[in-house]
């Protein structure tokens, strides 16, 4: 009897420990995010670092984000057509592709691709700077590593992601357009007209806001995991993996919340 109890207690203790650990790391992440925001708002500012990160996060992600959106938009058009909208394809395909891409798939797929591409590389970069004492060296050179490393990345992530999301939306709609006009026989004028008829300014704004939030998440989580990286190559590997997993899950959760906020009436 007592042995059963101990096993039960151990089980509960295990759950308790896990919950406490989760609370502690959530608290640490929130604190880190606040420090990053303070670093963005309070001088000194490191403008060149910011521009470099804009290039890295925004510009160099364009091919990945563009290709993802193009194929997704195209596949979406085929599915909608195949799924019974054959008879009013003229209006159903453009409108559903536009709304699906702009409201959900554009920002979410863009966020997930950038989390894999940029979030991982931020975590690996900052993690190896931690492991090789470069972050300590920054401090000894009278430079606050949060301001110098984290703030420019977080600002760049938050500003670059809406732009990438806009590109993702546009190319996704274009993917639907190509498939719709070349494979499904929809007249190109009608396709464009239908897209414009169904899409509202609110859809576009929600898309860009989602992009900004996802960009913030990707950069903060990538920096956080790297900054708190364990020792050695294994520490960096662990930080990189955690950055991708954590930011992907947070993106999906945040997407749900934002959809609630924007579209549930």
């Amino acid at each position: 009897m007592s042995q059963v109890l101990t096993a039960g207690q151990m089980f509960l203790a295990g759950i308790g420990r896990a919950v406490l650990g989760l609370c502690r790391s959530t608290g640490a992440l929130v604190l880190f995010a606040l420090q990053a925001v303070a670093g963005i708002l309070v001088p000194p500012f490191y403008g060149i670092e910011f521009l470099r990160q804009m290039m890295r996060i925004g510009y160099f992600s364009l091919p990945v984000v563009g290709l993802t959106a193009l194929f997704t938009g195209g596949a979406l058009a085929l599915q909608i057509y195949a799924g019974g909208s054959r008879f009013n394809a003229e209006s159903a395909v453009p409108s559903i592709v536009a709304i699906g891409m702009v409201r959900e798939l554009g920002p979410v797929l863009c966020g997930l691709m950038v989390a894999g591409r940029v979030g991982a590389s931020i975590a690996a970069e900052i993690g190896s700077m931690r492991v090789t004492e470069q972050i300590d060296a920054l401090t000894t050179l009278s430079t606050n590593p949060i301001k110098f490393l984290v703030a420019p990345r977080v600002l760049a992530g938050t500003l670059a992601m809406p732009l990438l999301t806009a590109v993702s939306d546009i190319i996704g709609v274009m993917g639907g357009f190509f498939v719709g006009t070349s494979r499904l026989g929809i007249a190109s004028g009608n396709y464009i007209q239908n897209t414009l008829d169904y899409l509202t300014a609110g859809d576009v704004v929600s898309s860009l806001v989602k992009g900004a939030v996802f960009g913030f998440i990707i950069a903060v989580v990538g920096c956080f995991e790297g900054y708190n990286s364990g020792r050695g190559a294994q520490g960096v590997a662990q930080a990189t993996r955690a950055a991708v997993v954590t930011s992907s899950i947070l993106i999906l959760a945040a997407n749900y919340l934002l959809t609630e906020v924007f579209f549930s009436t």
Partner: peptide
């Protein structure tokens, strides 16, 4: 401080490392 592993910033050139304090702040 000279660190055990050097801790040079590998994203910067040698002279930018040495002049780090004089390029900002």
């Amino acid at each position: 401080m000279l660190f055990q592993g050097g801790a040079l910033f590998d994203s910067m050139t040698v002279w930018e490392n040495v002049a780090f304090r004089f390029l900002r702040g």
